[in-house]
């Protein structure tokens, strides 16, 4: 299996000087289900944004299929930008920020209209509306929907570009049990049918078990502390408590 991403000593600092990632080195093979675990503020979302080509490291480098992923390259190399944006989809933690079109239909069609053109966009949109059971909401504005429905629209709009790599930021946050199950089913289908790579950031240990088989743990000082089999890591309770991923009180109870 080839690596879709290779990170070498990646550090990221916010404009106000706060450190978000400190010398992270990581390889992500194609077809992997990788879960990024870490306490609040450990840098999971920043890492996902770097993998999505939305933030760029202050130090170190990120390779995408062996090619350097940089801001300059994305701006200047049109072919690379198109290939990258088609292949990588990101689901944001805050769905309100992700939904900006006047109707659900246009929201889903936004990506395909940029990359493929109107005819294919129409076809893909209709398929996804049916797949996610959103036909009844197609002409409604996204902000008028409930939290779970918004999450569905956001997920459909990400899948509209037929990505091979999905980056999910807290995918199960604020979702009820049924919508969570739907999401897990779609992800399972995405990985089985398309051989896709799923990289999720979460601090929910229960959903982590389902989201992937590999796990990378970020510490509160923004370093990558451990990377390996998720079952092994989730059984190491002292380590999870140290990483602020498991409540000591709940563990005792």
């Amino acid at each position: 299996m080839t690596d879709v991403y290779t990170l070498r000593d990646v550090s990221f600092v916010y404009p106000d000087g706060r450190c978000a990632l400190d010398r992270v080195t990581l390889s992500i093979p194609e077809g992997t289900g990788l879960v990024l675990l870490g306490a609040n503020g450990s840098g999971k979302s920043s890492l996902l944004h770097i993998l999505a080509g939305l933030y760029f490291p202050a130090k170190g480098e990120v390779l995408f299929h062996g090619e350097v992923l940089s801001e300059e390259r994305l701006q200047r190399d049109e072919n690379f930008r198109r290939r990258f944006r088609t292949e990588v989809g990101i689901l944001f933690q805050n769905t309100d920020a992700q939904l900006f079109c006047p109707t659900v239909r246009e929201e889903i069609a936004f990506g395909p209209l940029q990359i493929f053109g109107a005819k294919q966009a129409l076809q893909v949109t209709d398929e996804l509306l049916a797949m996610f059971g959103l036909e009844a909401f197609a002409d409604l504005p996204p902000f008028a929907l409930s939290g779970g429905e918004k999450r569905k629209v956001a997920f459909a709009s990400v899948l509209a570009l037929r990505p091979r790599i999905l980056l999910l930021d807290e995918p199960t946050a604020n979702l009820d049990a049924e919508t969570c199950d739907d999401l897990f089913d779609w992800l399972e289908e995405f990985r089985k049918r398309d051989g896709g790579t799923v990289i999720s950031a979460t601090h929910d240990l229960h959903s982590a078990r389902i989201l992937g088989e590999t796990c990378a743990v970020l510490s509160r000082d923004h370093q990558l502390k451990r990377c390996g089999n998720i079952t092994e890591i989730l059984h190491d309770k002292p380590f999870l408590i140290e990483m602020n991923l498991m409540s000591r009180r709940l563990q005792q109870a």
């Binding site: 088609t86 989809g89 990101i90 992700q98 246009e106 936004f110 940029q114 990359i115 966009a121 990400v158």
Partner: peptide, 17 residues
């Protein structure tokens, strides 16, 4: 929102179905 638009291939033009 701008980041979300970029992630979905926004190239400066607003397509319409």
């Amino acid at each position: 929102t701008h980041r979300a638009m970029l992630a979905r291939g926004f190239n400066g033009s607003y397509g319409i179905l």
